[in-house]
Amino acid sequence: MNLERRVRICLESNALSVEETAGDITVTVPAGRLVDSLMALKEHPDLKFDFLSDVIGIDNLDLFRKKKGKGKAAEEEPPEKKVKAPPPPRFEIVYLLLSLESSERLRVKIQVPENDMTVDSVTSIWRAASWPEREIYDLFGINFLGHPDLKRLLMWDGFKGHPLRKDYPLEGKGETRRLVYEQEKIR
């Protein structure tokens, strides 16, 4: 049985869509059911995705902008057909899973809308998610519920902004650190 069908059987209705690119399988699950889905994938005897490789954040803002630009011209022609669709979720988080037994890989994706940027932390399943989640909090500004120590990882404390968002300029907004002696607070 191929991986796609096994994943569908395991996740049942939680698998919103299953895509395949270049032999890699990506399954999208609802953000609210993330921890349950990952637990199911980890403990299902046919899958056993028991190793978390990485957690990846993606900002889709530029993709929408391009689509909007194309869509505007099309929209102008039939104005009566304007239906107010809810904006597509801006952020995506991808969990890279690996099965140590069969060496199969799977990507689990959730979508995070801009107005509700809180996701359940998976550190209770894999402690490996600890720093990647902190990094996403730092660079994208997504909160993780239940993370033991959620604070900035790569940028310094007091840095404003989230650099990997698409609306943040590459060369920054001129943030600098003060170059005076300061007794740094030690936790």
Partner: peptide
Amino acid sequence: KKMTPVLK
């Protein structure tokens, strides 16, 4: 930029 105070 995070390292600048240390270098100074």
